[in-house]
Simulated assay, not measured.
Amino acid sequence: MKYLRGCLVIFIGFILIFTVIYFFYKSNVISSLETRSKKVELNWKNYVESIKSRNVKLKKRNIQNDSLIYFINISEKSKSDKFTVEFEFNEYEINQNLMIENSRNEFNDVLNKNIEIYNQSVREYNTYRGIFPNFIIAKKANSPKYFDYFDIIKYGIENQNPKIKRKKVEDWIKNGGDFPE
């Protein structure tokens, strides 16, 4: 009987220790996910602020390109609180029209750096959230699922149309073969 009681005490002790460790780990994961999520959102806001500054500066110039003016107006009116395909396409069009104008945009380096920082924070969040058992805890805590990368556009250089590139990637996922460039 003493042996059985001793085994039961040890078993209950292990369960208590495991439960305490799990709750500490869970609170640490949730805290880390919130911190990383806020970092992604802050980096996105910095990027959007740079776009707004660029748009203000471009509007002050005497732009003759109606398409560029049109897409700048769309950019100003759009609600850019998160990444969307429409937002990406609009930025693609602005970049293309600025290149047609041969207009040196001093914001290219700033925007590219902001995208790089945003994508790095998205990579950190998505990777941390995808690790076992973090994804189980994140799902139960209703953390954002995953953030999207903004990786198709590089400012100041020729880019492929994001709609066409996304279509090629979707076809590649469906059919396989060589990865589209």
Rank of each mutant, 00 (worst) to 15 (best):
K2D: 11
Y3M: 14
R5H: 15
C7S: 14
C7M: 13
C7F: 15
L8T: 11
V9S: 11
V9N: 06
V9C: 08
I10V: 14
F11Q: 14
F11K: 09
I12A: 05
F14D: 08
F14A: 12
F14S: 14
I15W: 08
I15E: 01
T19P: 01
I21M: 12
I21S: 12
Y22C: 11
S27Q: 12
N28E: 09
S31F: 02
S31M: 06
T35G: 12
S37G: 09
S37T: 09
K39S: 12
K39G: 10
K39Y: 13
V40A: 04
V40W: 00
N46E: 11
N46A: 10
V48K: 02
V48Q: 07
I51N: 12
K57D: 13
L58A: 03
R61V: 13
I63D: 04
I63Y: 02
D66R: 05
D66T: 14
S67T: 11
L68I: 08
L68S: 07
Y70F: 14
Y70P: 07
Y70M: 10
I72S: 00
N73W: 02
K77H: 04
K79P: 07
S80A: 15
S80C: 12
D81A: 12
K82E: 15
F83T: 12
F87M: 14
N90M: 10
E93I: 12
E93C: 07
I94Y: 01
N95L: 04
Q96W: 08
Q96I: 10
L98D: 01
M99K: 08
I100E: 15
E101W: 06
N102G: 07
S103Q: 11
R104L: 14
F107K: 06
F107T: 09
D109S: 14
D109A: 06
V110T: 10
N112Y: 01
N112D: 06
K113V: 03
N114H: 07
I115A: 13
I115K: 07
E116V: 09
Y118I: 04
Y118F: 09
N119I: 07
V122I: 01
R123H: 15
Y125C: 06
Y125H: 03
N126I: 06
Y128E: 12
R129H: 10
G130W: 02
I131P: 03
F132W: 07
P133E: 05
P133F: 01
N134H: 05
F135S: 13
F135D: 15
A138C: 03
K139M: 03
K139Q: 12
K139R: 08
K139G: 09
K140I: 13
A141G: 06
S143Y: 00
K145N: 12
K145W: 04
D148A: 14
Y149H: 05
Y149K: 04
D151G: 08
I152V: 13
G156W: 02
G156R: 03
E158H: 12
N159G: 03
P162F: 01
K165E: 11
R166L: 09
I173V: 13
D178I: 10
P180S: 02
